[in-house]
Design a binder for these strands. Sequence first.
RNA 1: GCCGGGAUGGCGGAAUUGGUAGACGCACCGGACUCAAAAUCCGGCGGUUGUGAGAUCGUGGGGGUUCGAUUCCCCCUCCCGGCACCA
Length: 727
Amino acid sequence: AIKNETAPAAWTYSNIEHMKTQLKQLGLGVDWNREIATCKPEYYKWEQWLFTELFKKGLIYKKTATVNWDPVDGTVLANEQVIDGRGWRSGALVEKRDIPQYFMKITAYAEELLTDLDKLDGWPEQVKTMQRNWIGKSFGCEVEFPILGLSDKLQVGNLKVYTTRPDTLMGATYVAVAAEHALATLAAHNNPQLAEFIAECKRGSVAEADVATAEKKGMDTGLFVTHPLNGEQLPVWVANYVLASYGEGAVMAVPAHDERDFEFANKYNLPIKAVIKNTGTDVLPMTEHGVLFNSSQFDGLNFEESTDAISSALSVKNLGKKRTQFRLRDWGVSRQRYWGCPIPIIHCATCGEVPVPAEQLPVVLPEDVVMDGVGSPIKKDPSFYETTCPTCNGKATRETDTLDTFFESSWYFARYASFDADKMCDERANYWLPVDQYVGGIEHAILHLLYARFFNKLMRDVGLIKNDEPFTNLLTQGMVLKDGSKMSKSKGNTVDPQALIDTYGADTARLFMMFAAPPEQSLEWADSGVEGAHRFLKRLWKATFDHVELGVTTAYTHGELSTELKLLRRQLHQTIAKVADDYGRRHSFNTAISSVMELMNALAKIETTDAVSRAIRQEVLENVALLLSPIVPHICQALWAELKPNSTILDAAWPEANKAAMVQDEVEYVVQVNGKLRGNMTVAKSMEKSAIEALAVTQPFVQKHLEGVSVKKIIVVPNKLVNIVAA
RNA sequence: GCCGGGAUGGCGGAAUUGGUAGACGCACCGGACUCAAAAUCCGGCGGUUGUGAGAUCGUGGGGGUUCGAUUCCCCCUCCCGGCACCA
């Protein structure tokens, strides 16, 4: 909006109009009565209502979290907008700020989000795997290390870590904490050098990819902890590879059996103690499971046994226990940007955080604003944020943060189902939901699809809908790439289909796109090939009109057929069967189209115009129009009206393959010698396996390759292939 | 780094359950039609070799299982998506 010198609302509405025009020009069948815009108060009113309900239930809470602050633009930046530590527009060095923000307790649903994946038979396995890994349920132990030498007055308690490898506990040689950890803060109190190191860590990126690939750095805190089982004193380090947001923000380091600890220990000359061996390699770091040694009373135990024994030993000392842990974190939904749904909270000096009462919703975002590029307009607008407390009627201020846009996209499908309801959604949602077929880019495999599943469960639990999961079947489209990377609004490398529609018409544009690649595969966008799609439609058009010009006829039903016509009719019905399977089961539109092209190529070779030939031609053309109608509807309707005057293709039934027409009395066998193709033979369908073997061996092209060798074995794959093994 | 995918002719892709690699289309080459061009129609089109029939190699690289591997297993390379504030 800043770049285009317009208000975000005007910009958004004009984009919606542009996109709608294109969708209409492509001839898509959309019920525009149900159109919604998530930036309109009629829509976001309901998610504000849900927010207040969840807030009251304790499923939304506030805590401080770190954001990227651009001191020049006076705004918070998304991770994507920080490039090499600098703001993408201003180029200013980005600072970190800890500010209070609202979080959704998605972790309260972690177990259900995980187990319900098993119900989603209509989802691709890869998406379910990604979600399982993201939720990341792991089984391990929490282990406590008493801290040495700190005054009891500080009351920091023990240093707690979480580990999935309790079997390696006896090999722990140091512990490491994240820069954000309380113990790091404490140790830095009288240690300026450490304080500077911690500050440096905090300046770094918060993105996990950056943390994981950064050079490992650390600093000794000078503090020691006691190993809970062997009583050894272990040094406490601050390390940049420890994630503050996972587990306890602290790890026990076992360099002998962990890659990252190993690298770190080598760099800082920390001791490395091997305690696990298996039958494979003993080169360190050895990260596989094995049998314990160097572990006193636990020697000789395997992974499961040692996990039980060590967790028991910890329990006895009250210094640890078994625990399951999720990688999933709560979802931070506060955004400090203007363009979004206002968070419906009022801050009152007396009553604290008060959710806006339902009768006062929606909290409307003013659309008539000037974007000066510095900060959010509503944060500077007293007419927006000055209000009275709904509880005590005293002076109060509105929350000026807005919601993450994922909030909007997490439930729109439920609103489509009851688009004009005077609540978030009504009984009609239960009629329509779950969505039969959801289609979306693979880039949404985790975040959007997990949030939508989460929202579905939240809406179920406030009594709005009944289903447990929002989407029965999921088709994940591959990315459309341009110049090697994802085509997207934020990259600004999108291609407008308008030029194709203008030059060739909607049907050619549709056929070309559907023919280019299967939908689940990523595709580098290129226009080459659009000519071919256009040519095919012209050929189809001409074939139909050439046929109709000779007079109206009816499709073949019975009567004697020449071999040529019989073969064509068999191909027709095989094509009908294949297209139905490609559309319905495989979502493989490109192969459906190519099989119709093959059929049309075969039809073009038939030149006879007697009554039976014309009846077969009529049958082929009618069916081709029907099969292609979902992809090129306009042309197919026009052709249908020629083939069957006074009728419309929308009233016609979807074709069914005729089994009798597909019967074959002869089959072609591929004949191989030692797996190498040597020729083909045509065999009566009824021929016995032994006769097929005998016939194959006598073929001249087989005999040639059997000179000087003898047949060891013959493999017959029914209706396909014979392989003669000879040596 | 971790998680999930992918790699097949000059190009997009096909081969659905381990069974003819390259369907269909693009581009290109040759021919027909034309004064000429466009359009259209016909034919060719993975590499090497051979006059030819054919032979042989070939699905990112290396190994393995199998009568038979683009397909299954192990190792590796490169590319794409995601990594919690792009959505």
